Amino acid sequence: MAREDLESRAAKNRGETSYSSAYVIEETDAYWTSWLIPVFVVANVAVFLVSMYINNCPKHNYRFHDKCVARFLGRFSFQPLGENPLLGPSSSTLEKLGALEWNRVVHEHQQWRLITFRVGIIYLLSGFGGSVLSSLFIRNSISVGASGALFGLLGAMFSELITNWTIYTNKAAALLTLLVIVIINLAIGILPHVDNFAHIGGFLTGCLAGFILLPRPQFGWIERRNLPADVRLKSKYKAYQYVLWLISLILLIAGFTVGLVMLLRGVNANEHCHWCHYLSCVPTDRWRCD
């Protein structure tokens, strides 16, 4: 009897231990936090601080009669609003740090300016696509920033929603929310000093890259190992996903090829599309676009 009590007590303890272990794992998963987005934020802030440190407005502001903005920040103060109304460094500093500039890309063969540091294939491709389209249309000013790559992530979200349409529950709400965000941000791009061509190029590139890289397999294919042997397996992807993948791959390769050939030959895309400049800036009584 004593032995049975000990065995039952040991079995009970083993059961409690097993339950406690499962509970701890569940709690650990519940408190998992995202780290990728904070890393992006910290990296962007760090790059901005480095650019402002190199800029040193109080020392190098000799071309403008206006004073630096927020002079209490010392060498981190911003350029006069007459030069940079977006509160940042001077154009010469941005050019020194690798800003996109048509003349340097085409005539000085500095094609590396088309590529900046990006994390993730879609982020990288979108930044590159936005830079190419921007260089084709904007020739008399420099362009800098990661907005093209960020718009690429929006484009990838859109294509991911379309190509995986059947797995979502609130399809209409998700699509409407995404479209509103994209339309508002593209509308802001028609203001002066905003490179909307980079936004459009990044969005289109990200959209095509999303169709290529973000399709999800069918549930039946994922669970194929748990199905009986006589059950017919489904294809990994649906037919329309294969079609979207193929079309997007062709368009992405063709777009990059044509864009780079035109860019390196010095083609001015504005001569082939006389109204396209309105996509980046619409002149009004309050501002000019030149």
Rank of each mutant, 00 (worst) to 15 (best):
M1C: 01
R3C: 00
E4F: 12
S8G: 00
S8N: 04
R9L: 00
R9Y: 00
K12H: 00
G15T: 00
S18Q: 13
S21R: 12
A22I: 12
V24Y: 12
E27H: 10
E27C: 11
Y31M: 09
S34H: 11
S34G: 13
W35V: 12
W35R: 09
L36H: 09
L36E: 07
N44C: 15
V50K: 11
N55Q: 05
C57N: 01
C57V: 06
P58R: 05
K59P: 00
K59H: 06
Y62C: 08
R63D: 08
K67E: 07
R71T: 14
L73E: 01
P80A: 05
L81Y: 11
G82N: 15
N84V: 00
P85T: 02
G88W: 12
P89C: 01
P89D: 02
T93G: 07
E95C: 10
E95T: 08
K96L: 15
L97E: 10
G98M: 00
H107A: 04
E108R: 13
E108D: 14
I115C: 11
F117W: 15
I122E: 04
F128T: 07
L136G: 00
L136K: 00
I142Q: 10
S143T: 06
S143R: 12
G145W: 05
G145Y: 10
A146Y: 11
A146I: 13
G152S: 05
G152A: 09
L153Y: 08
L154E: 06
L154C: 08
G155V: 01
F158R: 09
S159I: 05
E160M: 13
E160G: 15
L161G: 14
N164A: 12
T166D: 15
T166C: 07
T169S: 07
A173H: 13
A174P: 01
L175H: 07
L176Y: 13
T177L: 12
L178H: 15
L179C: 15
I183Y: 09
N185A: 11
L186M: 08
A187N: 03
A187C: 08
G189T: 05
G189I: 05
P192E: 07
H193P: 04
H193L: 15
F197R: 02
A198Y: 10
A198I: 08
G201T: 03
F203Q: 11
G206W: 07
C207E: 06
L208H: 07
L208W: 13
G210P: 06
G210V: 06
I212G: 05
L214Q: 11
R216S: 10
Q218H: 12
Q218T: 13
Q218K: 12
W221C: 01
E223N: 05
R224Y: 12
L227N: 07
S235M: 08
S235G: 01
S235H: 14
K236G: 00
V243L: 11
L249P: 00
I250E: 06
I250M: 08
G255A: 03
V258H: 10
V258I: 14
M262E: 09
L263F: 04
V267D: 02
N268S: 14
N268D: 15
A269C: 05
H272D: 05
C273H: 08
H274D: 08
C276D: 03
Y278V: 01
Y278R: 13
L279C: 03
C281T: 08
C281Q: 03
W287R: 03
W287K: 00
W287I: 02
C289D: 06
